[in-house]
């Protein structure tokens, strides 16, 4: 795992999920990735897991790009603090934070006929809105606020992974709690962008349609990297189709 100057350090939460897994597989060669996982881990080499060629044990080429896995439930008190400290102890800095961990269940019986939706309400808003904001704020407080020039030079930024559900209403799907938490995350993203501009860190959101059903997880992972490489801030990038030969499959 290289920590050379050119390599960007990326922290991604929910790294064992569909998007996290795709991102780690596609971009472990390009970033030093800290994969924050609650239960599942991505299927890539890490300090916990590596490939072995049974007929060429000394060949470690398949493990050249290991991610650094940190197991954590960021919704628990003190966990976000612990993870930020771990990241900063291991690397010289953080260039990209991808807030990808989320509660994603739907409540098909709706709100009126379903106590389960309200039983989940606080947890959904905690994980989908509060934790991303807090995680970004902790990186700001502990590292970014005193490095405005460096942040701008390295184009540091946060990508909050939201959902197209945060922009649209899908009747009968039982998405009221989930979708409203994503809508709140979108607006939280805009406010974070406004506040983080003072020290040169961009904050954007990503609003994919259902993946991998409507678009592939790889396409969504590519959109994360697109946001990392651009200069926009305070935007919500919609990913609702696969890239077209003449386009990019995304709109903001």
């Amino acid at each position: 795992m290289s920590t050379g100057e050119a390599r960007r350090v990326c922290v991604i939460t929910g790294a064992g999920g569909k998007l996290g897994n795709a991102f780690c597989k596609q971009y472990a060669a390009d970033y030093d990735i800290v994969a924050v996982c609650r239960t599942r881990v991505p299927g890539v080499p890490s300090q916990f897991e590596s490939y072995v060629d049974p007929l060429a044990v000394d060949d470690s080429s398949a493990n050249a790009n290991r991610v650094f896995v940190v197991m954590s439930d960021l919704a628990k008190p003190g966990e976000a603090d612990r993870v930020v400290d771990l990241v900063l102890a291991r690397y010289d800095g953080v260039d990209l934070v991808v807030n990808n961990a989320a509660e994603t269940a739907f409540h098909p019986a709706g709100l009126v006929d379903n106590d389960a939706a309200f039983a989940d309400f606080d947890r959904f808003f905690k994980v989908n809105v509060s934790v991303p904001a807090q995680f970004g704020a902790l990186f700001a407080r502990k590292f970014w606020t005193s490095r405005a020039h460096e942040n701008r030079e390295r184009n540091r930024n946060i990508v909050n992974v939201s959902s197209l559900s945060g922009n649209r209403v899908y009747p009968g799907g039982g998405q009221a709690v989930y979708a409203s938490s994503k809508a709140a995350l979108n607006h939280m993203t805009r406010y974070m962008a406004q506040e983080f501009e003072a020290f040169g860190v961009r904050v954007n959101g990503l609003a994919p349609t259902a993946f991998p059903a409507q678009v592939s997880s790889e396409t969504v992972a590519d959109a994360v990297v697109r946001l990392d490489r651009e200069s926009v801030t305070g935007k919500i990038l919609v990913v609702d189709r696969e890239p077209q030969p003449s386009g990019d499959g995304a709109s903001s």
Partner: peptide
Amino acid sequence: NLPDLLAHRQWVRREWPFPYIVA
């Protein structure tokens, strides 16, 4: 001749709770 018999050469080593390999 094991190279002819093995389906692939990407076995997975895990370190926790102790080092082990699965394939």
